[in-house]
């Protein structure tokens, strides 16, 4: 086997493994199976090919080949557009929508992962050149571990505490603990809410979390995650039954009112803790240097 063939082969294989590892379908059932997966696997193969061929061309002193990467970047930006458009269209028919912030986050992840695959294939290729195939394999595994470990985002448990809140009515007004959710006048609806509703209170750990929890996209993502896993007690044409989140303006606490089909408070709490903190919603005002920063416990 010639050296270039070895570099391209080992690099591509590690790149494809990286893409497959990052493509595991979890509870969100996204990417969809089977065609959504095929699309991303095919793009992953192209990305890993690019990364490893780049090493071979550079060793051949064919430096203009780098311009190919710009073409690749354009292609992968299209992946982001494709994901965004599809998810936005599908979201219109969800009972509890994902929300645009969540969609943007997913689209960004799909673009970013292709670059990770290129990087994995590239570094594996270089290592194969210097330390034969086993050195390449080792570097490839390290790259995959880094990609999987460090590209996993944070979860709600990292920035806030979740506890149960009492769902109750004061006249027609629905409250979770002391936070007003909405007003519904029908006795029938009120009984359904008391029977099926779950109230949770999200307490931010610091000022970073307070600002993040105020983001409507972040809040919608939490509601969507719970509805995906525990189901939702609502249907079209039932405007009075709607999971919603409201803030307590004084303390920054977030009241989450849920209507799960499986009414289990412990499960709901665990799901909210595991919900992703969206990249586009996360803010860190405490990172400011100097005196111009909010109180730690805003």
């Amino acid at each position: 086997m010639s050296e270039f063939t070895r570099i391209i082969f080992v690099g591509s294989v590690m790149g494809i493994i990286c893409r497959m590892w990052l493509l595991r379908t979890d509870y969100r059932q996204y990417p969809t199976y089977p065609h959504g997966k095929i699309i991303h696997l095919a793009l992953g193969v192209i990305a890993s090919g690019l990364g490893s061929v780049l090493v071979a061309t550079l060793l051949d002193k064919n430096y203009t080949a780098v311009t190919f990467l710009t073409l690749a970047a354009q292609q992968f930006r299209d992946v982001r557009n494709m994901e965004r458009q599809m998810l936005t269209n599908v979201d219109e028919l969800e009972l509890v929508p994902r929300g645009l912030t969540y969609i943007e986050g997913i689209a960004m992840a799909f673009e970013g992962r292709n670059y990770l695959v290129i990087a994995t294939a590239f570094f594996t290729g270089i290592a194969t050149h210097f330390w034969h195939w086993y050195g390449g394999g080792l570097v490839g595994i390290v790259c995959i571990v880094i990609a999987v470990k460090y590209m996993a985002g944070r979860t709600i448990a990292f920035i806030g505490n979740v506890r149960e809140g009492q769902v109750r009515f004061e006249g027609p007004n629905l409250f979770v603990d002391d936070i007003l959710i909405y007003n519904t006048g029908l006795k029938d609806t009120q009984q359904k809410i008391l029977k099926h509703g779950v109230g949770l209170i999200l307490e931010p750990k610091n000022a970073n979390a307070t600002v993040t929890f105020s983001n409507l996209g972040q809040r919608q993502a939490i509601l969507h995650d719970v509805a995906t896993i525990l189901g939702v007690y609502r249907d079209s044409g039932e405007p009075s039954l709607v999971p919603l989140s409201k803030r307590d303006l004084d303390s920054g606490r977030l009241a989450i009112f849920l209507l799960p089909l499986d009414r289990d408070v412990e499960k709901a709490k665990a799901i909210v803790r595991r919900a992703p903190v969206l990249e586009n919603a996360y803010r860190r005002p405490l990172k400011l240097t100097g005196k111009v920063k909010p109180d730690h416990h805003l």
Binding site: T184, G185, L186, G237
Partner: peptide
């Protein structure tokens, strides 16, 4: 009042809010 509001809620896909006792 409750019955009429319930019907209207289903027909109009709208939400019934109680503004004050006796007015939806």
């Amino acid at each position: 009042l409750q019955k009429t509001s319930l019907y209207l809620e289903k027909i109009l896909d709208a939400m019934a809010h109680e503004v004050k006792p006796g007015v939806m």
